Amino acid sequence: MMITLRKLPLAVAVAAGVMSAQAMAVDFHGYARSGIGWTGSGGEQQCFQTTGAQSKYRLGNECETYAELKLGQEVWKEGDKSFYFDTNVAYSVAQQNDWEATDPAFREANVQGKNLIEWLPGSTIWAGKRFYQRHDVHMIDFYYWDISGPGAGLENIDVGFGKLSLAATRSSEAGGSSSFASNNIYDYTNETANDVFDVRLAQMEINPGGTLELGVDYGRANLRDNYRLVDGASKDGWLFTAEHTQSVLKGFNKFVVQYATDSMTSQGKGLSQGSGVAFDNEKFAYNINNNGHMLRILDHGAISMGDNWDMMYVGMYQDINWDNDNGTKWWTVGIRPMYKWTPIMSTVMEIGYDNVESQRTGDKNNQYKITLAQQWQAGDSIWSRPAIRVFATYAKWDEKWGYDYTGNADNNANFGKAVPADFNGGSFGRGDSDEWTFGAQMEIWW
């Protein structure tokens, strides 16, 4: 008995050590931004985005507190085989008060198993909700290839000249389909599951310092038995992507060409959309029709120009041509140079221009935006974070068209359509004006 009692403290210590080691193995990653800002004409900070554009130049032009908190852990490992559990909870508030209630979004919860298939060394099996191989332009917060959501897949299969990845994910639309009631009355209240099937071939070395990635995505509306879509709904579509990445000037340049059809055009990033119906009456549900095509040509990157200068840049042309004439032509160009006074202090400027032409009206909206920021960051790279910055932003815009969301679809035949700025004596778009804002912001990723 005495021997047992003497061994007990040692056993407890060993158990505590094991539990401590396991606790220390938890990975904590994430992203956050928050700050305070004012508008020159009075009131809180207002942000500037061109009507019809899918993004905006973000430096000194973000008006919310946003965070993603990721917890993950390698829960099992034997040799080169392992299982990893990953989670991500995100939230966004308007940064107007101390207490701002919000419903967090559970954006990731997945398990990734590496090297589980003997004859596919280096590959990963995964299932669950996941940010899946996302491609974006940081300076405009624009995701041009992103099929994230609940799904499953097999990735990084070594095929000799590259890595092959296969995945299936889902994005549902509210009110996407109906069941038959009586007297030809349909009640569009059932969600429609939109499935996306993704095939990618990446890391193909085609020139010194250059790699090529090719991808095909097929999206479709997956209806339940005895349900139907509204007439004209976009049932399926394709997205084709080619991306060349070149190492240059201690950074990279990415050149991207994408072509999409029908349900893959509205978001243009790989998620299927077009079966959703915002109104019970299918007579007024025309606005979900996105049959047509999209072409996107994009070049972006980040480079170092000597010891003291870094720069991000982007140039993009996007043409969404829809059968219902509600598409757009959008082109944007911008730069973000950074001058480093010390390894932790810099001055950053961002200059961006957007131009969006309405397919329906032929009119154009444009905006110039310039931001000057003094910044303190954890390192001497344009990617170094955390960063604390004080900024001043000036924007000038001239908008000739907007979307008509007055009333509702039952009493407005133009609901959701592009109209000229002065349509029917109204005021659509943001008109011709300018404004400036100033404030302070922190940004961090880890």
Rank of each mutant, 00 (worst) to 15 (best):
A13T: 07
L229M: 01
G35D: 03
S266T: 13
R296H: 04
R224C: 05
D307N: 01
G17D: 05
A94T: 05
A221V: 04
E443D: 13
G17S: 11
F391C: 00
A11V: 14
G334S: 08
V75G: 10
S384A: 11
G334D: 00
F428C: 13
M442I: 13
T261I: 10
R6H: 01
G52D: 00
A242V: 04
A285V: 04
V14I: 01
A233T: 11
T189I: 07
W322C: 09
W38L: 12
P208T: 08
N287K: 05
F252V: 07
A440D: 03
R228H: 03
A90V: 02
D225Y: 11
T124P: 03
A302V: 13
T265I: 06
Q267H: 11
F131L: 12
E357K: 03
T50P: 14
W330L: 04
G43S: 02
H244Y: 11
V277I: 09
Q22H: 12
L298I: 00
G268C: 11
M19I: 12
G72C: 05
A193T: 09
K283N: 09
F240L: 15
K250N: 07
D103A: 12
Q318H: 08
L5P: 11
V12G: 15
R6S: 06
V12I: 07
A278V: 07
I303S: 15
A67V: 00
G210D: 11
G327D: 01
V356I: 04
F255Y: 00
S234A: 12
I140N: 09
A15T: 01
V89M: 06
S177A: 13
A21D: 07
G52S: 02
A16E: 10
A387T: 12
A23T: 04
V111M: 00
R6C: 11
M294I: 14
K269I: 05
S20F: 06
L229Q: 08
T342P: 15
V18I: 04
A242T: 06
A202V: 06
G270W: 12
A21T: 14
N291T: 14
G292C: 09
A152V: 14
A395T: 02
R6L: 07
G43C: 08
T265P: 15
V314M: 03
G219S: 08
V257I: 01
W99C: 00
G232D: 14
A32T: 07
V216I: 10
D325N: 15
Q133H: 01
G232V: 03
G37D: 08
V199M: 05
N207T: 15
T39I: 07
V18L: 02
G251C: 10
M338I: 10
G274C: 10
A21V: 06
R228S: 07
W322R: 14
T102I: 02
R58S: 09
G276D: 07
T192P: 13
W446G: 15
L223S: 10
D262N: 02
R224H: 09
A278T: 07
G268D: 10
V230G: 11
Q112H: 03
I344N: 06
W76G: 12
E282K: 05
F252Y: 08
G402C: 00
L249M: 14
V256I: 15
G268S: 01
D141A: 14
A23V: 04
L239V: 05
P9H: 14
A105T: 08
D354A: 10
P208Q: 09
A11E: 12
V248I: 08
I344F: 09
N287I: 01
E443A: 13
G315C: 10
A260T: 01
R220H: 06
S263L: 13
W331G: 11
V75M: 09
R170H: 03
G113C: 06
D236A: 12
Q273H: 11
V390G: 15
D236N: 04
T393N: 00
V230I: 02
A16T: 06
S275A: 15
A221T: 09
D262A: 14
G17C: 12
A181T: 11
T328I: 10
A285D: 06
R336S: 15
R296C: 05
G251V: 00
S381N: 13
V230L: 05
K269R: 01
K254M: 01
G251D: 03
M312I: 03
A16V: 06
M316I: 04
G122D: 00
G35S: 08
A233V: 14
G301C: 15
R224S: 12
T51I: 05
A109V: 04
A193V: 09
G35C: 02
D136A: 02
R200C: 01
A32V: 04
Q359P: 10
G30C: 04
A260S: 13
A13V: 02
A260D: 00
W397C: 13
G215C: 08
P386Q: 03
R58H: 08
T124I: 03
L223M: 14
W309C: 02
I36F: 05
A233S: 13
T192I: 08
G42D: 02
